[in-house]
Design a binder for these strands. Structure first.
Length: 216
DNA sequence: CACCAGGCAAGTA
DNA sequence: TACTTGCATGGT
């Protein structure tokens, strides 16, 4: 079975099983950016609590967040873990947004996609996965997001090996699937859901909709 | 009690 | 370049 065919089959089966997942959970583009930073190596549930607190404090706004004291932000996002470092990361992004795009997210996303990706990677605390999550889910750009679940599932299906770089895994998808935002959005969401349900550290493949896709 | 969760950067060799 | 370590909460 060809790689392209496997990727398509996996998508079809996961999509039929889970249905439309409507990612990213978040209402505004800033909320999605903040969520992308706060969820780094952290359970999403803990992030939801933190975002709820920021909202209550009316800090989920570029200017308000820019002005807020670090100690205040840190306390509000406490539940998301690594709260001191994540405060610095939120601040680093928001300063970048103000310095380069006058605090205007729409202006930021009107930048050419791969140029913006490079700019985001220069921000302290934004790595490849966070940058791509921002581009895809907040900006609606057709960029595939690679995360720990993506790697785990693809390794188990012998589509990649440990040691593949982020860009190699990303290219595997993007060279074989249409450059379609809707597709990349749903595919990544499906991989995360499948990973949580069926492919954790202790894999329980029973019932997994892609258990039948050949492993090698 | 241990282990994990939708990473990243800084330090070391 | 390739590894190691710190960052920290909340759930199982």
């Amino acid at each position: 079975m060809q790689v392209q065919e496997k990727l398509a089959t996996m998508y079809e089966r996961l999509d039929a099983y889970f249905g439309d997942l409507h990612w990213w959970p978040g209402e505004t583009s800033l909320e999605i950016v903040v969520g992308a930073i706060l969820t780094q190596n952290t359970n999403w549930k803990n992030v939801e609590t933190a975002i709820g607190r920021l909202k209550e404090a009316a800090l989920l706004d570029p200017l308000m967040l820019y002005r807020a004291d670090d100690s205040v932000v840190a306390e509000l996002i406490r539940s998301s873990g690594y709260y001191n470092i994540k405060t610095q990361r939120l601040k680093a992004f928001i300063e970048f947004l103000h310095n380069e795009y006058a605090g205007d997210l729409d202006a930021m996303f009107s930048e050419e996609t791969w140029t913006l990706r490079k700019q985001l990677l220069d921000v302290r605390g934004i790595g490849e996965e966070t940058a791509d999550s921002i581009l895809l889910y907040a900006g609606g750009k057709p960029v595939f997001v690679v995360d720990a679940y993506t790697r785990r599932i693809l390794e188990r299906h012998a589509l990649i090996a440990p040691g593949w770089s982020y860009r190699e895994v990303q290219t595997l998808f993007m060279d074989r699937l249409p450059r379609d935002t809707r597709l990349y959005n749903q595919y990544h969401a499906l991989l995360v859901q499948a990973g949580k349900r069926f492919c954790n550290k202790k894999p329980l493949c029973d019932g997994c909709p892609i258990a039948g896709v050949p492993f090698a």
